[in-house]
Structure formats: structure tokens, C-alpha cells
Design a protein around this nucleic acid. Sequence first.
DNA 1: TTTCTACTTTATAATGATTCTAAAAAGGTG
DNA 2: CACCTTTTTAGAATCATTATAAAGTAGAAA
Lengths: 132, 132
Amino acid sequence: MKYIEKLRNSGLRPTKQRLKICQVLFDSEKTFHFTVNDLAKKIKIKIDSNISLATIYNTVHAFEKKGYLKQIPINSSQTYFDTNVSDHHHFYDLNNDKLIDLENSDVGPINIKKKINGKKIKSVEVLVKLED
Amino acid sequence: MKYIEKLRNSGLRPTKQRLKICQVLFDSEKTFHFTVNDLAKKIKIKIDSNISLATIYNTVHAFEKKGYLKQIPINSSQTYFDTNVSDHHHFYDLNNDKLIDLENSDVGPINIKKKINGKKIKSVEVLVKLED
DNA sequence: TTTCTACTTTATAATGATTCTAAAAAGGTG
DNA sequence: CACCTTTTTAGAATCATTATAAAGTAGAAA
């Protein structure tokens, strides 16, 4: 099945639970943003099965480390993840805590002129806060 | 004293504790980044007095709401604040969890081309992740 | 298939930052 | 000073996340 490779690449055995998590994460047409709690609910609804939070955390973190998921840099009580792993940015609507993708092409090139000794840039992420 | 106005502007009475917090936050030559825990330690060392965490949280949040402090958008178990409230950005060194200011002039203009219906932009923040 | 071992899952406990609470203390106005 | 409101504080509560350890499963090898 198509998710086995993704799991193995992430250093995880393809178990029933993990394949179900993959289904919810990667089977949908559109990418989406989620917290671990959101994901747990979605799994319960879509797959009608209870997977323990520990397993979900474990799987999500492995995917994140491997680049199959991205963490969204934002201050919130929960950690937000994105199934869109392309190079892009976010709007954050302060009035309802919703995130909206901002494509790279909608921001234009960002040129970081300052260099830090011995360090290289891993990512450049823009967060645009919105209000009414 | 110079911090009384800042406190009153933030809707807070100038109490002994809050004036001490102001001293540590705003008396230094350079701006700095901190977590509430960092700040509590700094107060203990510099002012040699114990102010309860509840009071520090309360004061920091009031200043943040009023714009005398900024929250730094980043995923971390603790919330990071910045006494530099000018329009600027950050490097985040993943190897040691340290933040470094990135002045606006080191990034160049950022042009957000996408508009969201009925919403206005409150801030545009760039986070540049660094690694060895 | 059977066995064996390492990896998984899970419920539950532990952790740690932040928020809440309620009683005692302090601010500040008259 | 008197009074009332705000504040401080220690400690409890909350809540996301991580750790634990016992029972289950994957998968390689015989």
C-alpha cells in the first residue's frame, strides 16, 4: 500500500494504527492544518476507531522529523501541523484562531541579508497576523 | 518614576512588584528575549526579591496586550517574549534554542499580495530557522 | 508454520507551563 | 483615617505533551 514506504522512510513499521493515521493525513484532496487533538477526532469520525494519543503523537512526530508534515510557527497552547509541506507561509486570523495558507508566490522573494557565523538557513517562514 | 505611566497605560496600578518587573524589563541598555521563567530568575538575581509567578504572568501579559512587549511566534514549550517592540524579525537557532534579532533592514520589504476579505494585516513576522 | 526478538500500542501516570482561586495585603480616593 | 477595589501570593487546577511498563504484533529466520 502506498503509505508503507512513507512509514518505513520515517523509521516506523507499518502497523494498522499508523496506516489509518496516514489515511486521514494523506488521503484527502486538499492539504490541511491540524492539532493532535483535531487529528484524533478526525480519525474517530472517519475511520471509526480509537487510536491512543500516544500513538498519534509518536507518528506525527516521526513524519514531522522526516518532512512529511510541517510544524507551523505560532504561539498557541497547542502545536499546529500542516500536511502542506511545500515551501509556503501562513495567515493567522487572531479573531478565530484560524490558519490560512499563503503561497510563496503571494509573498515574493525574501532576501535575508544578515549571516550568522557557521550557521546555515534551514527555513524562512512568514506569519501574517490578521484582525477584523 | 518613569514606569508609572507605562503601568497605568496598561491598566495596572504601579505596585512595588510591578515597578521591579519594569526595572528588569526596561532598564537595560539592550533589548532581550525571555520566557517568564527567565524573567523570574533575572528578578531574583538583580533585585534580590521573590515575586510570585502569577504576578509576573499578569504584568507581562498586560504589557504584551498594550504593545510594550512582543510575543515571538515560535513553537516551543515556553512562550518567548521580546523587549524589542520595533518592527523586526528573528533567527531561531535550532541547535541551542537561541533567538537572535533580525532587523527589518536585513530582510528587505515583504509584499503580501494575497488579501483576505474583511481582514486587515496586523503584523508580518519572519522566522528564520538556523542549523549547523 | 513456529519461534524469537525488537518494535508497538495502550492506558495511565508524570511533567511542566500556564491559569485559576481565594484569602491576606496594599493602593488610592474621599 | 476609612473604605473599597485592586493586587499579591501560595497553592491548586488545567491541559498539552511526554514517559512508563505491560501486553500485543511485526517480521525475519529456522
